[in-house]
Amino acid sequence: MNVSLDLALVLVLVLCVASVGTSRIGAAIRYFSFQAAAVAMVPLLIETRSGEISVHAWVLFAMTIVLKVVGVPYLLNRSVREAAVRTEVEPLIGFGLSLAIGGALVALSFALARQLPLLQKPPSDLLIPVAFSLLMIGLLLIVSRSKAVTQVVGYLIMENGIFLFGLLLLETFPWLIEMGVLLDLFVAVFVMGIVIFQINREFDHIDSHQLDSLKD
């Protein structure tokens, strides 16, 4: 059963790297949605190793599917449609270079994961390195892309990384908190979507790097 867990994690990582390499915003959102679906499978796969799948894991799975696989991509696609942007025109760091940096970050993640000892063996040796990779690649997207929507995708990828870390604590984390976190994330994206729409109306583009009249 461990094989399918590892496969899911590898899939998450590949989809994450793919969203760094693409220039089309629609594709980046689609990759994120697939990635969220793979991430949603992980708690179920972790629990199938020990037999019973708890209600907790099912609820987590359902919430992730509803909010991250369907809800968030829908909101993002809508703001892309309304803002009529298709491609990331001038990223601060070129796509080739971003991919190279992304690869380096993945390597760094594997090195970093060895530095943090765990009392209990994690469900998969890939869990922590993949979580670190999502975190760092998400940050890379936020700082290196100029379209507000791509920055939000970066933020969401980061959030998925944190979700994977959270799965280390699957059995002991209170539900209430997890639901709160997921709902907050959803509302955050909702608010960001509104702001993106307003940016577009005000400036006729959603290029956040042209938002630079405020500086010292």
Binding site: I142, Q151, Y155, I162, G166, L169, Q198, D212, S213, L214
Partner: peptide
């Protein structure tokens, strides 16, 4: 200008708060 400030606030705070969530985990 207000819009620019709001966007900066949202994206910077969100990244900050995401790191705080990771710290909590």
């Amino acid at each position: 200008r207000a819009l620019e400030a709001t966007w900066k606030y949202l994206i910077v705070s969100s990244v900050g708060i995401a790191l705080a969530l990771l710290g909590t985990v």
